[in-house]
Amino acid sequence: MNTDIALWMVQDGVVTGAIYGLMALALVLVFAVTRVIFVPQGEFVSMAGLTLGTLQLGQTPGTVYLLVGGGLLVAAVEMVQAARLGLLRQRLPRLILAWIILPVAMAMLVVWLAPHKLGSWVEMALTLGLIVPVGPMLYRIAYRPLANASVLVLFIVSMAVHYALTGIELAMFGGEGLRTNAISDWVLGSGSMKIGAQSIWVVSASVACMVVLWFFFERSLYGKALRATAINRVGARLVGISTDLAGRTAFLLAAAIGALSGLLMSPITTVYFDSGLMIGLKGFVGAILGGMVSYPLAVLGAVGVGLLESFSSFWASAYKETIVFTLLIPVLLWRSLTARHLVAEDEEE
């Protein structure tokens, strides 16, 4: 291997590592706030890639049905709950606005604009508008009713949600893969040291996203409230931060991070309906390296996974997944030897 190939592979590793890093951030966030190991995180990525691809073909993506259907389901669940508490009349107007009128309006906007092919930026905005609300909907339907269940039960729910979403994606987009147009197609550098514009987009957007998240958690009231919930759920409720609000916000962010990753990644790799799991799992390996609690370590771990994957696909491409997942064993051994107290805390709940 010469320097050129090594540099090219480092570049490739950093770009995929940045995406895995975003996955890892979302996984740590969701786990810290809700104790959910969010296996379907990658599904937002594949869904965003496929939605953007469909829009670029000038067609209406199936995601509009998911959004409207999910909204109706949440509205139904909320109405039943409000009726049980005898608060139906008070809550009904807001429920209908948030879960029926807004999703339908968003879906109609997409149906109306899709055939006009208004360019990358508009199509990306529409994709975000379709996918981000699905995060809180998933929380409300699948996780909220079990908010006090054990980590294991929540994990099993995650597996179920993963299979359900993969099936829905197959129904919405079919088995064909899609690759979206690059945001811009210029290339930096020359000769053997070329950096594609999309690589720069991926890395800079990931870094920007991480900086925004940092400010959110360090400076904003809601960011602090999420951290407070992660640190002490009882304490958070006692100051008026509802577990429900924190959960919804965490899933909203996770969906936003996932959808953004999908927009960034789809011009580089062809996305299929079932691409999500692998992307999510690689992020998960990164998150494990950070112990599921540390954001910076999770990102570093994920970039490491990207690099490892890039180099192992050069030396032993048949084994590249094996190598990445084998890395988990020594890390988990080391973690379980050093972090006994984490288990104890979990049993307490």
Binding site: K224, R227, I231, N232, V234, G235, A236, L238
Partner: peptide
Amino acid sequence: RRELFGEL
């Protein structure tokens, strides 16, 4: 148990 936010 006070239930403070220890790491804030």
